[in-house]
Design a protein around this nucleic acid. Sequence first.
DNA 1: CTTGTATAGTACGAAATCGCACTATATAAT
DNA 2: ATTATATAGTGCGATTTCGTACTATACAAG
Lengths: 165, 165
Amino acid sequence: MPEDDAAPVGEIFAFFNEVGIIAQLSRALFESRLPDGITVQHFSVLNHLIRVADGRTPLELANAFQVPKTSMTHTLAGLEKRGFVEVGPNPEDGRSKLIWLTPSGRAFRQEAQGLLSEDINRLSEKITADRIAPLLPELTQIRQILDKDRDPKKPSRREQPAHLR
Amino acid sequence: MPEDDAAPVGEIFAFFNEVGIIAQLSRALFESRLPDGITVQHFSVLNHLIRVADGRTPLELANAFQVPKTSMTHTLAGLEKRGFVEVGPNPEDGRSKLIWLTPSGRAFRQEAQGLLSEDINRLSEKITADRIAPLLPELTQIRQILDKDRDPKKPSRREQPAHLR
DNA sequence: CTTGTATAGTACGAAATCGCACTATATAAT
DNA sequence: ATTATATAGTGCGATTTCGTACTATACAAG
């Protein structure tokens, strides 16, 4: 029976606890700024398509955001319904599809970014960049560890880190 | 008008991005260990009731976890349905209720903690405590900033930090 | 070429999340 | 006491999330 790992376990647990609440709060904050039925997930996918490149497959996107592919299907359906993306065939794989941004999708992302930057600017007065800059590499590493750790069934076809400019 | 904060904005955004994905991954990991219909939220609430003290009101719990009170109602209903908590009147306020752990609830939490500690032990080999220890105070501070920042309507009846042993 | 197996995406259903509106109680103002 | 306002909790409905099972295509083995 384990006897001496109370501290580490407690700390790791506390870490996930804080991370969970911060994710919760930031999600709620950003979501309150986005128009009607648009979620953070919608915005994030648009953002990813612009920052990385469009013409991604749904599965690539699901991997990039670490959600089940069924969830991504749903998110993409919402984006398509609103005319922000178009779904085309994948010439290299008949089972697959490619997601393309529409001009409307690009315009919306630009607009939404403006709405969010208001909040981010306000927050950046309190959460200064020099405070979070050192955290980022640590978090990235932890994210990668968690990512590799999960379900060995899925070969973890990793993707661009979903951020990084 | 702001002109030079492009870098901070990007970094803050990247920060929330990482935090969101880590929350996503850790939630999925823990949830996969918990029995059938039990979510991380269920476990967290039980945990909170033990670590802090039971006899909390639903609203206190909602504040502690930063979720809307309607969400907490739902979570508590699930816990009650499974016999893990009991809901009693609040002698100090007729509008309110108090949530009490049942022996079964305490037992289940103990058991579930064992299941999770397996994962945490495995992770702690890669995510060593000395790596995350310095992150914790920073994250806590950011959580508090975000918390104070939100909806000024709600007077932010703050609560015990929902963790801390 | 046929067969077996792996993969991409989706349909469907169950559960979680959460905003809105409502009831009941509390508190303050007069 | 009466009235007005604020607060705790819930019912309800819309949406999101995601596991299971399915279809269609790819690829490998023979």
